[in-house]
Amino acid sequence: MTTKNTKTAAPEGPAAEVEMTHAGSTAVRVPMETIMLSNHLRIDGTDYLPGAKVRVTADYARRLRMQGYIART
């Protein structure tokens, strides 16, 4: 059986900021949101457990909310 080394974010502590690259100008400020995950999610090879707080762009947070990945507060 092979094991895969992955990074795992702990649910406690400050929110981790996910680096997201976008095509286009880097001078544009993108609004960010801090979200709490309700399900396990892997972003760019990093595993985020349920309850983890993550800072993502507002657009990505909206898409995650529609798919049910964000915990209701």
Rank of each mutant, 00 (worst) to 15 (best):
D59H: 15
D44S: 15
R42H: 12
M66R: 09
A52T: 07
N5I: 14
L41I: 12
T57V: 05
T26N: 15
M36F: 07
P50L: 12
R63M: 09
T3W: 04
M1I: 07
T34V: 13
T21I: 13
A16K: 09
I70L: 14
A10T: 03
R29M: 00
G24H: 08
P11Q: 03
A9C: 01
A52I: 01
K4R: 10
V54E: 15
G68K: 06
I35N: 02
L41M: 15
K4M: 09
G13M: 02
M36Q: 15
D44F: 10
K53H: 14
T3V: 08
L64I: 07
A16Q: 08
E12T: 12
A61I: 03
I70H: 14
G68S: 03
P50W: 12
T26L: 13
Y60S: 10
E19W: 09
T2N: 06
A23P: 11
Y48G: 05
G51D: 02
A52E: 00
P11S: 04
V30K: 01
V30R: 00
D59K: 15
R55E: 12
M20Q: 15
H22S: 08
A58Q: 09
T73L: 05
T6F: 00
T3S: 11
A15L: 09
K4A: 12
G51C: 03
L41N: 12
P50F: 08
T46N: 04
A15D: 08
G68H: 04
M36V: 14
L41S: 15
T57C: 14
S25L: 01
M32I: 05
N39H: 09
V28E: 05
M32T: 05
Y48A: 05
A61D: 06
A9M: 01
K7V: 06
Y48N: 05
M66V: 04
N5V: 11
K53V: 10
N5G: 09
T46Q: 04
T2W: 04
R55P: 03
R29Q: 01
Y69W: 08
